[in-house]
Amino acid sequence: MCALNAKKTNAQCKTLFDRLVEKGKNKKAAVIAVCNKLLKIVFGVVKNKTTYQDNFIVKSA
């Protein structure tokens, strides 16, 4: 249910969903990909003990 809501409200999830559907994936597979993306976002936020930042950019060395 979170993935269905995220594809409507989260810009990153919306672009991922739209891109996969345009490539020919069925909508159920695209929702599972959005779910996977949400899990990765949540894991990163919890691991780093930070708040979610919509425009976060990773700075590498």
Results as ranks from 00 to 15, higher is better:
V58C: 12
K8D: 04
N48I: 08
S60C: 08
K27P: 01
N5W: 10
K49S: 12
I41F: 03
V21Q: 00
N55Y: 08
I32V: 15
R19V: 09
L20M: 10
C2M: 11
A61C: 12
K14T: 06
L38S: 05
V21L: 00
N36R: 14
R19F: 07
D18L: 07
A6G: 03
K27G: 03
K37F: 03
V58A: 15
L20F: 04
E22C: 04
A29Y: 03
N36F: 05
K14Q: 12
K59D: 15
V31Q: 06
K8Q: 09
I41P: 05
V45T: 05
G44S: 12
D54E: 11
K8L: 13
T51Q: 08
Y52N: 10
N5R: 13
A29Q: 09
T9M: 03
T51R: 08
V58Q: 13
T51P: 03
L4F: 07
D18Y: 00
Q12P: 05
L4P: 02
C35P: 02
D18N: 08
D18G: 03
L4D: 08
L39V: 13
F17D: 00
K49N: 14
L20V: 04
F56A: 15
K8A: 12
V58Y: 13
S60T: 14
K47S: 15
I32W: 03
F56S: 09
A11T: 15
N48V: 09
T50F: 02
G44F: 08
A3D: 06
I32L: 12
A6F: 05
V31K: 02
K25D: 04
F56H: 11
N10V: 08
V45P: 02
K49Q: 12
V42Y: 12
T15Y: 06
N26W: 06
K59M: 12
A30N: 02
N48L: 10
V46D: 07
K7W: 01
N10G: 05
K49P: 00
Y52A: 12
A6D: 01
N26F: 10
V21Y: 00
N26H: 11
L4R: 04
Q53R: 10
Q12I: 11
C13A: 09
F43V: 00
I41M: 13
F56P: 02
V46E: 08
V31T: 14
L20C: 02
A6H: 03
L20E: 02
V31I: 15
K8H: 07
K23L: 09
K40Q: 14
K59P: 07
A30Y: 00
A3R: 07
N48S: 14
M1Y: 05
K25G: 00
K49T: 10
I32H: 06
E22M: 06
S60D: 10
